[in-house]
Computed example of a mutant assay.
Amino acid sequence: MPEPQTPQDPPIPPLSARDEPRFRDLARKQALAGAFQEQGEHYDRLRPGYPDAVLEAILARVPVREADGMACGPRAVDLGAGTGKLSWALVDRGLEVTAVDPSVAMLETARRRDPSTATNAALPSAAARAPGPSAGTLTTRVATAEATGLPTGSAELVTVAQAWHWFDARAASAEVARLLTAGGVLALVWNRLDVTIPWVHRLSRIMHAGDVHREDFRPTVGPELELRGRGVQQWEDPMPTQDVIDLARTRSYVITAPAERRARVFANLDWYLHEHLGHAPGSTIAVPYRTDWFMYRAVRG
């Protein structure tokens, strides 16, 4: 069966003038951030993971850790870990990971992915599980990025995927600098629909995707952190058309919208994919993404 033809859309406008999402006020930001707390299953099923090339680029900058004179897997703190998309990718690469998130529901979803190697450190006094000789481990902790309660100098790597713009950047920067060991690194990572492609740009507009940044955007960080590198990886995530429609369920605008408005978004996406673009219902399409990553080190006095 031939591939469906993509109708010619009008030229896309400039992508964005923003370095990060804008919010009407702090109350609106907090309401949108809180909207994700009960969306763990949708988020885990529909949002993509992170390309191997990005993970390799990040881990190449992480210092070696020694214990009892022997090299061992680095310790990582994944802030705003959500359902553990990035956390588990780091565990699979041998890291001892503490996944930190204020949402109990999100972290429960993360633990269900592999309960045999995950522990729950919801209370500040709970101890993380010791890593095995070659495999990484996951510990979850209910806390905010601005006040994790973890020991000073307890991580060679701090990661934040899809979440930095929800934090108080100044307070979170200070906490990251406190957590990092000497030479440790912070990695900020965003998966975004690749809106440089016209049909994807229109898809993101219908979906009300709010993570469209200017091409050369720079995250806001505090003076404790200095940028040491950045990169962009373009890639594709194959998804059934219904999953592309359902992807809107993981967007804060749609989650918080009245039922009638949500139904209109889903109907518009159905029309766009199946009638306008001509994809057969249930067929799989390659959704273009780009992953932006930024690496920082703490500024030591």
Rank of each mutant, 00 (worst) to 15 (best):
Q5N: 08
T6D: 06
P10G: 07
E20Q: 14
F23N: 02
R24P: 00
R24H: 12
R24T: 14
K29I: 05
A31D: 08
E38N: 07
Q39T: 03
Q39F: 02
L46H: 10
R47F: 03
R47P: 04
Y50L: 11
D52I: 03
A53H: 04
E56Q: 14
A57S: 12
R61T: 13
V62C: 11
A67L: 09
A67H: 10
D68V: 02
C72A: 11
C72K: 14
G73L: 04
V77M: 02
V77Y: 03
G80C: 12
G82V: 06
R93P: 05
G94S: 09
V97R: 02
A99H: 09
V100N: 01
A105W: 00
M106W: 01
E108Y: 00
R112I: 00
R112L: 06
P115R: 07
S116R: 15
T117W: 09
N120G: 01
P124Q: 13
G132K: 11
T137V: 15
A143F: 12
A143I: 09
T148G: 06
L150Y: 13
P151H: 13
L157K: 13
T159R: 07
A161S: 13
Q162S: 06
W164S: 07
W166I: 05
A171S: 15
A171F: 02
A172V: 09
A174N: 05
L188S: 03
V189L: 15
W190Q: 04
W190M: 01
N191M: 05
R192T: 14
D194C: 09
T196W: 04
I197N: 06
R202F: 09
L203F: 15
R205Y: 03
G210V: 04
V212H: 05
H213Q: 13
D216P: 02
G222P: 08
P223A: 15
R228E: 14
V232D: 06
Q233V: 15
W235Y: 10
P240R: 12
T241M: 07
D243L: 02
D246R: 14
R249Y: 01
R251I: 02
S252R: 05
V254I: 09
E260C: 00
V265T: 13
H274Q: 05
L277E: 04
G278H: 06
H279V: 01
H279P: 01
S283P: 11
T284R: 13
R290D: 01
F294V: 05
Y296R: 02
G301A: 14
G301N: 11
